[in-house]
Protein backbone atom coordinates (compact mmCIF):
# COMPACT_ATOMS: atom_id res chain seq x y z
CA UNK A 1 0.00 0.00 0.00
CA UNK A 2 1.21 3.47 -0.70
CA UNK A 3 2.09 5.51 2.31
CA UNK A 4 -0.08 8.45 3.13
CA UNK A 5 1.52 11.66 1.96
CA UNK A 6 -0.77 13.70 4.14
CA UNK A 7 0.86 15.77 6.86
CA UNK A 8 1.85 13.55 9.72
CA UNK A 9 -0.35 15.24 12.20
CA UNK A 10 -1.82 13.60 15.22
CA UNK A 11 -5.36 12.76 14.32
CA UNK A 12 -6.45 13.23 17.85
CA UNK A 13 -5.19 16.78 17.96
CA UNK A 14 -6.70 17.47 14.61
CA UNK A 15 -10.08 16.25 15.66
CA UNK A 16 -9.89 18.04 18.95
CA UNK A 17 -9.46 21.29 17.10
CA UNK A 18 -12.09 20.80 14.48
CA UNK A 19 -14.85 18.65 15.79
CA UNK A 20 -16.94 21.29 17.53
CA UNK A 21 -17.17 23.43 14.38
CA UNK A 22 -18.14 20.54 12.24
CA UNK A 23 -20.63 19.30 14.72
CA UNK A 24 -22.27 22.68 14.87
CA UNK A 25 -22.68 22.76 11.15
CA UNK A 26 -23.63 19.13 11.06
CA UNK A 27 -26.25 19.26 13.73
CA UNK A 28 -29.80 18.60 12.61
CA UNK A 29 -30.71 21.74 14.46
CA UNK A 30 -28.60 23.67 12.02
CA UNK A 31 -30.79 22.40 9.18
CA UNK A 32 -34.37 23.10 10.19
CA UNK A 33 -36.97 21.15 8.34
CA UNK A 34 -34.60 18.32 7.52
CA UNK A 35 -36.56 15.11 7.88
CA UNK A 36 -35.11 11.97 9.31
CA UNK A 37 -37.02 9.16 7.78
CA UNK A 38 -36.66 5.46 7.94
CA UNK A 39 -37.63 4.97 11.51
CA UNK A 40 -34.61 6.46 13.13
CA UNK A 41 -36.15 9.76 13.88
CA UNK A 42 -33.55 12.09 15.25
CA UNK A 43 -31.90 9.58 17.42
CA UNK A 44 -28.26 9.04 17.09
CA UNK A 45 -27.85 11.35 14.17
CA UNK A 46 -25.67 14.33 13.73
CA UNK A 47 -24.18 14.69 17.13
CA UNK A 48 -27.41 14.60 19.09
CA UNK A 49 -27.14 12.45 22.17
CA UNK A 50 -27.78 8.94 20.91
CA UNK A 51 -30.14 6.65 22.69
CA UNK A 52 -32.10 3.50 22.08
CA UNK A 53 -31.46 0.38 20.12
CA UNK A 54 -29.90 0.80 16.74
CA UNK A 55 -29.51 -2.79 15.58
CA UNK A 56 -31.24 -5.91 16.78
CA UNK A 57 -30.96 -9.36 15.23
CA UNK A 58 -32.68 -12.52 16.28
CA UNK A 59 -31.73 -15.93 14.95
CA UNK A 60 -30.09 -14.30 11.95
CA UNK A 61 -29.04 -16.84 9.38
CA UNK A 62 -27.62 -16.27 5.95
CA UNK A 63 -27.06 -19.30 3.76
CA UNK A 64 -25.48 -19.81 0.37
CA UNK A 65 -25.52 -22.69 -2.07
CA UNK A 66 -28.31 -25.14 -2.71
CA UNK A 67 -29.91 -27.84 -0.67
CA UNK A 68 -27.13 -30.33 -1.47
CA UNK A 69 -24.30 -28.06 -0.42
CA UNK A 70 -25.58 -25.34 1.81
CA UNK A 71 -23.16 -23.09 3.69
CA UNK A 72 -24.26 -20.89 6.53
CA UNK A 73 -22.34 -17.64 6.49
CA UNK A 74 -24.37 -16.56 9.50
CA UNK A 75 -25.89 -19.19 11.66
CA UNK A 76 -28.33 -17.93 14.22
CA UNK A 77 -26.80 -14.64 15.27
CA UNK A 78 -28.68 -12.77 17.94
CA UNK A 79 -27.37 -9.45 19.15
CA UNK A 80 -28.40 -5.95 20.01
CA UNK A 81 -26.39 -2.81 19.46
CA UNK A 82 -27.31 0.28 21.36
CA UNK A 83 -26.86 3.81 20.15
CA UNK A 84 -23.43 5.21 20.85
CA UNK A 85 -21.56 1.93 20.90
CA UNK A 86 -18.38 1.35 18.99
CA UNK A 87 -18.53 -2.31 18.18
CA UNK A 88 -15.62 -4.21 16.69
CA UNK A 89 -16.56 -7.46 15.03
CA UNK A 90 -13.54 -9.70 14.82
CA UNK A 91 -13.05 -13.11 13.37
CA UNK A 92 -11.12 -15.10 10.85
CA UNK A 93 -11.84 -14.97 7.14
CA UNK A 94 -15.11 -16.67 6.30
CA UNK A 95 -16.51 -16.23 9.78
CA UNK A 96 -19.41 -14.14 8.48
CA UNK A 97 -18.26 -10.67 9.51
CA UNK A 98 -18.87 -8.95 6.17
CA UNK A 99 -22.08 -10.87 5.69
CA UNK A 100 -23.31 -9.55 9.02
CA UNK A 101 -22.48 -6.03 7.95
CA UNK A 102 -24.28 -6.46 4.61
CA UNK A 103 -27.40 -7.75 6.30
CA UNK A 104 -27.43 -5.12 9.02
CA UNK A 105 -26.89 -2.40 6.42
CA UNK A 106 -29.83 -3.63 4.37
CA UNK A 107 -27.62 -4.47 1.42
CA UNK A 108 -28.29 -8.19 1.69
CA UNK A 109 -31.89 -9.20 2.11
CA UNK A 110 -31.56 -12.92 1.54
CA UNK A 111 -31.44 -13.77 5.22
CA UNK A 112 -33.58 -15.72 7.61
CA UNK A 113 -34.49 -14.60 11.08
CA UNK A 114 -35.29 -11.12 12.22
CA UNK A 115 -33.31 -7.96 11.77
CA UNK A 116 -34.38 -4.61 13.16
CA UNK A 117 -32.74 -1.35 12.36
CA UNK A 118 -33.81 1.65 14.37
CA UNK A 119 -36.68 -0.47 15.67
CA UNK A 120 -37.95 -1.29 12.22
CA UNK A 121 -38.12 -4.77 10.82
CA UNK A 122 -35.96 -4.79 7.70
CA UNK A 123 -37.92 -7.62 6.11
CA UNK A 124 -41.04 -5.50 6.07
CA UNK A 125 -39.42 -2.42 4.62
CA UNK A 126 -39.86 -1.71 0.97
CA UNK A 127 -36.87 -0.98 -1.19
CA UNK A 128 -37.66 2.72 -1.21
CA UNK A 129 -37.86 2.92 2.57
CA UNK A 130 -34.72 0.91 3.06
CA UNK A 131 -32.82 2.96 0.49
CA UNK A 132 -33.87 6.14 2.21
CA UNK A 133 -32.72 4.70 5.50
CA UNK A 134 -29.33 3.90 4.00
CA UNK A 135 -29.17 7.33 2.47
CA UNK A 136 -29.82 9.26 5.65
CA UNK A 137 -29.15 7.06 8.62
CA UNK A 138 -26.33 4.76 7.64
CA UNK A 139 -22.81 5.44 6.44
CA UNK A 140 -20.72 2.75 4.82
CA UNK A 141 -16.95 2.51 4.76
CA UNK A 142 -15.47 -0.29 2.70
CA UNK A 143 -12.09 -1.94 2.67
CA UNK A 144 -11.80 -1.28 -1.08
CA UNK A 145 -12.93 2.35 -0.60
CA UNK A 146 -15.23 2.09 -3.64
CA UNK A 147 -14.52 5.60 -4.80
CA UNK A 148 -15.64 6.52 -8.29
CA UNK A 149 -12.61 7.19 -10.42
CA UNK A 150 -14.38 9.45 -12.90
CA UNK A 151 -15.44 11.86 -10.19
CA UNK A 152 -13.46 14.36 -8.18
CA UNK A 153 -12.91 13.82 -4.49
CA UNK A 154 -15.62 16.35 -3.71
CA UNK A 155 -18.15 14.71 -6.03
CA UNK A 156 -17.37 11.36 -4.47
CA UNK A 157 -18.16 12.75 -1.06
CA UNK A 158 -21.37 14.28 -2.42
CA UNK A 159 -22.55 11.04 -4.05
CA UNK A 160 -25.12 10.16 -1.36
CA UNK A 161 -26.85 13.51 -1.82
CA UNK A 162 -27.75 12.55 -5.39
CA UNK A 163 -30.11 9.92 -4.09
CA UNK A 164 -31.64 11.92 -1.33
CA UNK A 165 -35.19 12.71 -2.42
CA UNK A 166 -34.57 16.30 -1.39
CA UNK A 167 -31.25 16.47 -3.26
CA UNK A 168 -29.85 18.87 -0.65
CA UNK A 169 -26.95 21.10 -1.45
CA UNK A 170 -24.29 19.66 0.82
CA UNK A 171 -21.19 21.10 -0.80
CA UNK A 172 -20.39 23.15 2.27
CA UNK A 173 -20.83 20.15 4.51
CA UNK A 174 -18.67 18.07 2.19
CA UNK A 175 -15.93 20.68 2.18
CA UNK A 176 -16.04 20.89 5.95
CA UNK A 177 -15.64 17.15 6.20
CA UNK A 178 -12.76 17.16 3.75
CA UNK A 179 -11.18 20.00 5.66
CA UNK A 180 -11.53 18.11 8.89
CA UNK A 181 -9.99 15.05 7.34
CA UNK A 182 -7.12 17.03 5.89
CA UNK A 183 -8.22 16.77 2.28
CA UNK A 184 -9.67 20.18 1.56
CA UNK A 185 -6.89 20.99 -0.87
CA UNK A 186 -7.50 17.75 -2.75
CA UNK A 187 -11.22 18.32 -3.33
CA UNK A 188 -10.92 18.67 -7.08
CA UNK A 189 -8.39 15.88 -7.50
CA UNK A 190 -9.31 12.49 -8.85
CA UNK A 191 -9.25 9.62 -6.35
CA UNK A 192 -6.51 8.02 -8.42
CA UNK A 193 -4.20 10.83 -7.39
CA UNK A 194 -4.58 10.03 -3.71
CA UNK A 195 -2.83 7.56 -1.47
CA UNK A 196 -4.68 4.67 0.10
CA UNK A 197 -5.09 6.49 3.38
CA UNK A 198 -6.40 9.57 1.69
CA UNK A 199 -8.86 7.52 -0.29
CA UNK A 200 -10.12 5.90 2.85
CA UNK A 201 -10.61 9.32 4.40
CA UNK A 202 -12.57 10.38 1.34
CA UNK A 203 -14.73 7.30 1.80
CA UNK A 204 -15.22 8.21 5.45
CA UNK A 205 -16.19 11.74 4.50
CA UNK A 206 -18.72 10.29 2.06
CA UNK A 207 -20.11 8.06 4.78
CA UNK A 208 -20.48 11.01 7.14
CA UNK A 209 -22.00 13.41 4.63
CA UNK A 210 -25.60 12.77 5.59
CA UNK A 211 -24.83 12.79 9.35
CA UNK A 212 -25.68 9.13 9.77
CA UNK A 213 -26.66 7.60 13.06
CA UNK A 214 -24.87 4.37 12.27
CA UNK A 215 -21.51 3.89 10.63
CA UNK A 216 -20.85 0.45 9.16
CA UNK A 217 -17.22 -0.24 8.37
CA UNK A 218 -16.05 -3.29 6.49
CA UNK A 219 -12.34 -3.84 7.07
CA UNK A 220 -11.71 -0.08 7.05
CA UNK A 221 -8.01 -0.55 7.65
CA UNK A 222 -7.57 -3.60 5.48
CA UNK A 223 -5.93 -1.72 2.62
CA UNK A 224 -3.92 0.68 4.72
CA UNK A 225 -0.40 0.56 5.99
CA UNK A 226 0.22 0.36 9.67
CA UNK A 227 0.51 4.08 10.27
CA UNK A 228 -2.58 4.94 8.29
CA UNK A 229 -4.49 2.12 9.90
CA UNK A 230 -3.64 3.58 13.28
CA UNK A 231 -4.77 7.03 12.23
CA UNK A 232 -8.01 5.67 10.84
CA UNK A 233 -8.70 3.74 13.99
CA UNK A 234 -8.08 6.87 15.98
CA UNK A 235 -10.44 8.76 13.74
CA UNK A 236 -13.23 6.27 14.34
CA UNK A 237 -12.60 6.51 18.00
CA UNK A 238 -12.83 10.26 17.85
CA UNK A 239 -15.97 10.24 15.77
CA UNK A 240 -17.51 7.91 18.27
CA UNK A 241 -16.40 9.88 21.24
CA UNK A 242 -17.16 13.32 19.94
CA UNK A 243 -20.26 12.75 17.88
CA UNK A 244 -21.71 9.81 19.72
CA UNK A 245 -21.80 7.96 16.43
CA UNK A 246 -22.73 4.32 16.62
CA UNK A 247 -20.03 2.38 14.84
CA UNK A 248 -20.10 -1.24 13.79
CA UNK A 249 -16.72 -2.15 12.36
CA UNK A 250 -15.82 -5.49 10.92
CA UNK A 251 -12.09 -5.97 11.08
CA UNK A 252 -9.09 -8.17 11.43
CA UNK A 253 -7.40 -5.31 13.15
CA UNK A 254 -6.94 -6.03 16.82
CA UNK A 255 -6.03 -2.41 17.43
CA UNK A 256 -9.56 -1.44 16.51
CA UNK A 257 -10.78 -3.74 19.22
CA UNK A 258 -8.67 -1.76 21.64
CA UNK A 259 -10.66 1.41 21.06
CA UNK A 260 -14.00 -0.36 20.84
CA UNK A 261 -16.53 -0.23 23.59
CA UNK A 262 -17.55 -3.72 22.70
CA UNK A 263 -15.98 -6.63 20.89
CA UNK A 264 -17.83 -9.40 19.12
CA UNK A 265 -15.94 -12.37 17.78
CA UNK A 266 -17.51 -14.49 15.11
CA UNK A 267 -16.51 -17.96 14.08
CA UNK A 268 -18.26 -20.07 11.48
CA UNK A 269 -21.15 -17.69 11.38
CA UNK A 270 -21.78 -17.75 15.11
CA UNK A 271 -21.04 -15.33 17.91
CA UNK A 272 -18.09 -16.80 19.72
CA UNK A 273 -17.51 -13.93 22.07
CA UNK A 274 -19.41 -10.76 22.85
CA UNK A 275 -18.05 -8.52 25.51
CA UNK A 276 -16.90 -5.14 26.63
CA UNK A 277 -13.96 -3.69 24.80
CA UNK A 278 -11.03 -2.09 26.44
CA UNK A 279 -12.71 1.29 26.26
CA UNK A 280 -15.75 -0.08 27.97
CA UNK A 281 -17.94 2.92 27.27
CA UNK A 282 -21.56 2.34 26.73
CA UNK A 283 -21.07 -1.17 25.56
CA UNK A 284 -22.99 -3.64 27.59
CA UNK A 285 -21.88 -7.06 28.58
CA UNK A 286 -23.66 -9.95 27.07
CA UNK A 287 -23.33 -13.66 27.07
CA UNK A 288 -19.65 -13.85 26.57
CA UNK A 289 -18.31 -16.97 25.05
CA UNK A 290 -21.66 -18.49 24.39
CA UNK A 291 -21.76 -20.44 21.17
CA UNK A 292 -24.19 -19.88 18.38
CA UNK A 293 -25.16 -16.38 19.37
CA UNK A 294 -28.23 -17.72 21.04
CA UNK A 295 -27.98 -15.27 23.85
CA UNK A 296 -29.22 -11.77 23.20
CA UNK A 297 -26.43 -9.39 23.65
CA UNK A 298 -26.47 -5.86 24.84
CA UNK A 299 -30.02 -5.74 26.05
Amino acid sequence: MPSDPAPARAVGEHVEARVPEVLDAASPRARPGRRREGGGGEKGGGGAAPSGTVVRTEGLRRSYGDARAVRHALDGVTLTIEAGELVAVLGPSGSGKSTLLGVVGGLDRGYEGRVELFDRNLAKMRDRELSRLRCRQIGFVFQAFHLLGHLSVLDNVLAPALFDPEWPDLRRRAMELLDRLGLADRAEDAPGQLSGGQRQRVAIARALLQRPALLLCDEPTGNLDTEMAARTIALFSELHAEEGLTVLAVTHEERLAEVATRVIRLRDGRVEHDGRGKQGGRGKQGGQGKQGGQVEVGS
Binding site: D127, S131, C135
Partner: peptide, 16 residues
Amino acid sequence: RAEIALYRAVGATALD
Protein backbone atom coordinates in the same frame (compact mmCIF):
# COMPACT_ATOMS: atom_id res chain seq x y z
CA ARG B 1 -21.71 -3.51 -10.89
CA ALA B 2 -19.57 -2.12 -8.09
CA GLU B 3 -20.58 1.44 -8.87
CA ILE B 4 -24.24 0.52 -8.97
CA ALA B 5 -23.84 -1.35 -5.69
CA LEU B 6 -22.14 1.66 -4.14
CA TYR B 7 -24.99 3.90 -5.22
CA ARG B 8 -27.40 1.42 -3.72
CA ALA B 9 -25.38 1.52 -0.50
CA VAL B 10 -25.54 5.29 -0.29
CA GLY B 11 -29.25 5.47 -0.90
CA ALA B 12 -30.21 4.71 -4.48
CA THR B 13 -33.39 2.70 -4.87
CA ALA B 14 -33.71 -0.01 -7.48
CA LEU B 15 -35.98 2.38 -9.32
CA ASP B 16 -33.29 5.07 -9.16
